[in-house]
Structures are given as structure tokens and as C-alpha cells.
Amino acid sequence: MDLRPLTADDRELIELARRTVDANTDGPDGVYTMGAAVRGADGRMYAGINLYHFTGGPCAELVALGRARAEGARELTTIVAVGNENRGVVGPCGRDRQILFDYHPAIRVLLPTADGPRSVAITDLLPAAFPWSP
């Protein structure tokens, strides 16, 4: 796995996700609130927040992807999710990994590691993936 150190742009993306989740958290009541941010190839950033629901509402990463797409971004370079209550950077779930791989196979994902957050290609997170296409 090709883990890379964070860039200034990566740290800016983490900060946007953190601000988003802090401003919109459901609090410490056991609700798993997540914020996410994605960067377009043009440098613009888009944020999203999950919709926690017992049926498994949409993850913050998917909301951020949808927002970016709704605003015209088609090529995305980097994505990150951050947990509420200072939980920091959190890696994407399996469903998110598959969707990222299918829609943005060149995207980099920011992940927590023992050495702090690092950047990795989505293809490293989903080796030998089943490529879906509409």
C-alpha cells in the first residue's frame, strides 16, 4: 500500500470536514455523526454530513460526492471523512470504497494510520475489485 504524507491541500480538506461535522453534529448521545469533504480537480471543495438513521442512512462521503456532482464537479482528486466529538479522520466503509472505485478510480483517500493521517489510492483500498459500470 502506497501511503503518502499529507499535503497542505489534504490538511485543508480535513479542516473543512472537521468544521462541517462540528457545526452539524448530533452530539455525544451515541449518534455516529460524520462529516466529509472532497476536492475537485479544479481545487474546489465540497462538504457533506451523514444522515444517521437506524436503516443505515447515507454516509457523509456519499453526501459529499453527491453535492460535488450537483455542483458540476465530475473529476475528484481526494476525499476524507472526520468523526464528531474529536474522533478525527475515519476510513470509508466497504460500500463507500466500492462507489469511490467505480465513480472515481483515481481518487486518493485520507486514512488514519499509526503515524497519523495519510493519503492512499482507492485502488489500494479495494484490490481486485469488481468494476461496476452502468
Rank of each mutant, 00 (worst) to 15 (best):
E85F: 04
Y52I: 11
A41N: 04
R44F: 00
P127R: 14
D96V: 14
R11K: 14
R87I: 03
A17V: 05
E12N: 05
A68D: 07
G30I: 03
D42I: 04
L76V: 07
D42H: 03
Y46K: 11
R118Y: 07
M45W: 02
L6S: 09
H104T: 03
A23M: 10
C59M: 03
P5W: 07
I49A: 08
A68K: 09
A121N: 13
I14T: 08
I107M: 15
L3R: 15
R108P: 02
G48T: 00
R118T: 03
T78R: 15
L51M: 09
I107V: 14
A68C: 05
T113G: 02
D2L: 05
L51I: 10
T20C: 06
V120K: 06
R69K: 10
I99F: 00
V120T: 14
M45I: 09
T113D: 03
T25V: 04
G88W: 03
T78F: 02
T77H: 04
D22P: 06
A41F: 00
G94I: 12
S133T: 13
D115V: 04
L16P: 00
D9H: 11
E12Q: 09
R97H: 01
A128W: 05
V21Q: 09
G116R: 15
G43A: 03
R4W: 14
H104W: 05
A64C: 00
L110P: 07
L126G: 02
T123A: 12
T78L: 13
R118S: 09
R67K: 13
W132E: 07
A106D: 15
L51K: 15
I49H: 08
A81D: 00
P127L: 04
L76W: 04
L126S: 09
A60E: 12
I122R: 06
A60R: 15
A129N: 03
I122A: 13
L62G: 04
D115G: 02
V31L: 10
P131E: 06
R69A: 08
T25Y: 00
R18L: 02
T77L: 07
L111R: 11
V80H: 06
